[in-house]
Design a protein around this nucleic acid. Structure first.
Lengths: 350, 350
DNA sequence: CTGAAAGCGCTTACAG
DNA sequence: CTGAAAGCGCTTACAG
């Protein structure tokens, strides 16, 4: 607060009007920027606000005019760097547009999810970007959501939910990375990680299956292994896969986290990943680049998805009549070391 | 919305009162839980709310009673996993207490920082947890903050700012990891990374100096190297250090990110980290465990710091008379491979 | 370009 | 335990 100013507790529009010698309507006009106020009056008012340390009370303003410039972001797992990057994208776009974001982490709990969504609505969020917790059902969401709040579902699509959506191209990405392994000469390829109840797993596994089938390679049902999408899950599932009598020569993992767990299991077993066995992931989190050997994976541009999600939600908020839309983001193959492509090239050359 | 309910646009307390056959005061009483309402009346009101799809308008409520149950979280770099973990801690505690959090990422921009802090205040945040951007000054902050908003500074302390603070024990942590290297027999130890203008760097370097001095080891000013706290910065600075005529045998890095860059530079030069040279970090981000060799570093419990920050802020919000407090969190040595302790033990045994 | 008045959805004393 | 009235800080037509 500038020196000389009185540290009043609550400076309101009325005190500004008094000090500037105008009515409070005029002050409101410069605040909203709607009506046209004489430039010198405007300047004087602005200066008085500064002197008195005035803070615009948007809660009061919203009470009168609805539309709030607040958006909620509900994340299922902020500890996953993928979602942190997604959040950065969302928040950047929101900030540029003059919006402010509520953020909540549900840790995959549908209960917490309902709670935070309700809280955000009560606090006047005009829209919510939801990365749904694992067991989210369409009915629950219909209750947690409401007509005053625009809803956008991100990352995990939710069949049967009336909302816009932003998801990466899981099917195409998975097909692409599977083709990559097929091109490298692999035939016994396992699909590892995630639970078959997860929509994302279904999509990614579908891409895997399509690529295998299109290449005329039989899929061994014994090489379809489920596990929780964690490092530990990947470790256990991979250990099982390696204990198989006729073990796979390549493994397509549900995501990077599972792949890193799988790499650990292979190393523990004395295998050199990228030479003795190929392992690939999905997401391209920053860890993928830093593990050794570096992980071949699918980049989905988490930041870009976040930006797109925010832009689409803003569009729906400002234009309530706009139809629900869905966006499927790119999925790009990042060839690194864990697939053995580099070694393969050397062998081919020699 | 349950079937049978009219999808009215805005259900207010008045419509609830009418439908339940009571006055709106009574409805307000069950909403706030303050007065005592006859249990059956209460039940009936609650049921009507559910049927009509009522959403409590906290903006309107706050207008009357001040105190808002909203808190702001301003992060300087959400892409750093350390801050994502910190945010998780903050948000968990806030959620438990029935608060909702605004979140903003400044990307080290003081301009964005001022903007988002003002926005949060305008939207009625009762307090703000700030991880300040690099060039934040006490004066700017005094302007961006205000008497209605409790301020808590986290991670980077800000000399001269009247606010509670939560920071890790940078001095002790740095001294501890330096002692670890001294115990391993190192004498030519470099301090690498960060800019001397950063308060965190000053604290960590102080811990380094104290440990060296206490051990009676001279500090070579030529082995104090600054760089931006990024992977690339660490890479360049380490390259310079290795080009020195009498190069260090061990390197204490400003943080994990710098250390990982430094490890890359050493490897590029043909050195085996942990055998030919020791490199250690600070923070214990998840990457530290996954690089190869695994990074010896200082764990500061980011989640715990976040929880503590939130708890302290809540305390100040509910009890405005409470004095400002500061908390210094633990700093624990995580011995892994990059310091060569394991190799050292083998040698000693043989 | 400016002023007086009503109202947004709620809470808070104050009567009953 | 319940009702009528005032007011929180702002915006919005409506006059001037």
């Amino acid at each position: 607060m500038p020196q000389g100013a009185q540290p009043r507790d609550k400076v309101t529009i009325i005190e500004i009007a008094d000090a500037a010698g105008v009515s409070k309507s005029t002050v409101s006009l410069v605040l909203t920027g709607r009506g046209s106020v004489k430039p010198e009056t405007r300047e004087r008012i602005l200066q008085v606000m500064d002197e008195l340390g005035y803070v615009y009370n948007r809660g009061a303003a919203n009470l009168r005019n609805t539309q709030s410039k607040i958006v909620g972001l509900v994340l299922n797992d902020l500890s996953n760097p993928f979602f942190a990057e997604f959040a950065i994208g969302v928040e950047t776009v929101l900030q540029m547009a003059g919006y402010v974001a509520f953020m909540a982490n549900t840790s995959e709990s549908v209960v917490r999810q309902s709670q935070v969504m309700r809280m955000m609505r009560e606090h006047g969020a005009g829209g919510i970007i939801l990365c749904p917790a694992l067991d989210t059902t369409a009915e629950e969401l219909a209750l947690a959501s409401g007509p005053e709040t625009a809803l956008l579902v991100a990352i995990r699509r939710l069949p049967g939910v009336a909302a816009s959506s932003v998801v990466p191209d899981n099917v195409a990405g998975s097909a692409r990375i599977t083709r990559h392994l097929l091109n490298l000469g692999h035939r016994r390829i396992a699909y590892l990680g995630g639970m078959s109840s997860m929509v994302v797993r279904q999509d990614r596994h579908q891409g895997f299956s399509e690529a295998m089938t299109k290449a005329g390679v039989a899929i061994d049902p014994g090489l379809n292994l489920e596990c929780m999408p964690t490092r530990d899950g990947g470790f256990s599932a991979m250990s099982s896969a390696l204990a198989l009598p006729n073990r796979p020569t390549a493994v397509v993992c549900y995501n990077d986290v599972v792949a890193i767990g799988a790499m650990l299991a292979a190393a523990r077993r004395g295998l050199v990943v990228g030479r003795d066995i190929a392992i690939v992931g999905f997401d391209d989190t920053s860890e993928a680049r830093h593990v050794s050997p570096a992980l071949t994976t699918i980049a989905v541009d988490a930041v870009g998805l976040g930006e797109r999600a925010a832009a689409m939600l803003l569009e729906r908020i400002t234009n309530r009549a706009a139809p629900e839309t869905s966006h499927v983001g790119p999925a790009e193959l990042m060839i690194r070391e864990s697939c053995g492509a580099y070694q393969h090239a050397l062998t081919a050359a020699g």
